[in-house]
């Protein structure tokens, strides 16, 4: 039985008001979903709030899930929109802006440098500096290991946009790491 089969079966029980199934569903996705939300918000308390809201939404809407996508796609989609909504309320900065300046140093030397020791802290720091939309895509691609087609469903944008966001995220990471390691 795949994870999706398990999740779907739990959802069906949740739709009938089964609270035990709901707890199982929570345990199945909670950690990953929290990391995904936090990757966008970078605020533990708010991320916990949205996590809570997302699961409440699952409880309310379980019966509307038709199985057209994977359960995780549906779930991450709910979390994504709740997160974007929260961010919109907090700031006027457009959340879908992709006009990121690309000044990364692509030279082989710089690349080699980035792969050396101390990288962990720097990478973490640089991940935090990414734009929210880029962090979300990177989280889905590198933590959830999702294909771009599924990420596109979650963040509700064309597949090419997902690839482009990921590309910009990677360039931004290179630039950030280059600055930190060079300085």
């Amino acid at each position: 039985m795949t994870e999706n089969d398990t999740a779907y079966s739990l959802l069906q029980r949740i739709s009938k008001g089964d609270e035990i199934a709901f707890a199982d569903f929570y345990h199945l996705f909670e950690k990953r979903l929290y990391l995904f939300i936090k990757s966008k918000l970078n605020d533990s308390f708010e991320a916990a709030d949205i996590l809570n809201e997302t699961f409440l939404e699952v409880w309310r809407k379980a019966e509307t899930f038709e199985g057209r996508s994977k359960v995780s796609t549906w779930l991450f989609g709910i979390a994504y929109f709740k997160t974007v909504d929260r961010m919109r309320k907090k700031t006027d900065i457009p959340m879908d802006s992709d006009n990121f300046p690309e000044t990364a140093d692509d030279s082989p030397d710089a690349m080699a440098c980035l792969l050396t020791a101390e990288k962990s802290d720097h990478i973490k720091f640089c991940l935090d500096t990414l734009k929210a939309v880029q962090r979300a895509v990177m989280q889905l691609a590198f933590f959830e290991d999702l294909p771009y087609s599924e990420i596109a469903l979650i963040v509700d944008c064309p597949e090419n946009t997902v690839k482009t966001r990921m590309f910009h995220a990677k360039q931004a990471m290179k630039r950030c790491l280059s600055n930190r390691m060079g300085g």
């Binding site: 909670e30 082989p108 792969l115 990478i123 991940l127």
Partner: peptide
Amino acid sequence: DECAFLENLRDEVQNQTHESSPGQLGL
């Protein structure tokens, strides 16, 4: 080389799991 860089990046993202989630309290 770029592929190697991305593999490192992915490893780092995967290692973020030490960050504690709400867990049982959240439930």
